[in-house]
Amino acid sequence: MNIKKDTLALRASGLCASFDGIEVISDLTFDVREGELLAILGPSGCGKTTSLRLIAGFELATAGSLTIGGESVIESNNFRPPEKRGVGMVFQDYALFPHMTVLENIEYGLQGIEGQHQMTAQALAMTNLTNFGDRRVHELSGGEQQRVALARAIAPQPKLLLLDEPFSNLDPSLRSRVREELHDIVRQTGITTILVTHDQEEALSIADRVAFMTSGKIVQIGSPEEIYLQPASIDVAVFIGETNVLYGVVSNSSVDTPLGTFAASDNGSIAAVLVRPEHLVLSKIGIPATVTHREYYGHDQILRVQLDDTTLVRVRIDSRTHHLPGDRVMISLSEAPLVLAASG
């Protein structure tokens, strides 16, 4: 990885945006280091695409400032238009120019630049499109269109690359391959990248850092491990992966749940105990439970079990163990759970 820890490629501070008087982005503050791949993850309508459009210059910020590559592009009344920001963007619908060939699409951003033929050839080669130059856009498959969109965005060698849900229009069977290709290309160019997605697997698998966004705010920013293992809130935890959430009242600095008693702070408050299904195992001794449903996935399976006090939990086990609804099992924790204060 060629992330330069000290150089900032982008700094957003206090960015706000609103549509028809309703604030859709509030106090957006984050840094992206040079060469880093940051994923903005969140449910649909959380403001992640608007954040990307603010950075690209397609929407107007109502407050805050933004610098890209050390140059200020949003600051009080100073607004730099999109064509002067040097930012490349891959749109969700790819936004290829339908009246141009692949080559013309890529050359569009290189007009008047010296060495444009070389840059075009390089972008085509990097995206494995060398033989596609004369093709019309509508003759291409979804995956090929996506590569053209990427080639067009990186050809002018932008300071920053923005990817708006780049895989959402692809067939699920294609997605992981295309994701791998895109990841390789981005790594090869070393270009600083911000990716927006609602797919947690996508964000966790290719990002250096993940920013979780909900209701127009960034809730947590951190490495994929931090986000998955130490989510800052129940929202983050539940969105990012399956979670059993058990509530209890804190007394004597601990909270009592059907899965055990765990240390907690704030006596008298309600705490949430978060247990990922893979942190529960079937064991010889443990908490007795009855299997109610079985969801078999191939690479593993989820058992839905009911504890004797009627609490339902999900347990992830390997794909060879065979259990049917009605079986009696014992479960226990393989890892200490996360205890959070249950807000509200």
Binding site: G57, E83, G88, M89, F91, A95, Y108, A153
Partner: peptide, 13 residues
């Protein structure tokens, strides 16, 4: 589509 106009702006036009 408005996105192709945005794309063209983003490419420096």
């Amino acid at each position: 589509r408005p996105s192709i106009e945005d794309a063209a702006r983003g490419l420096g036009r």
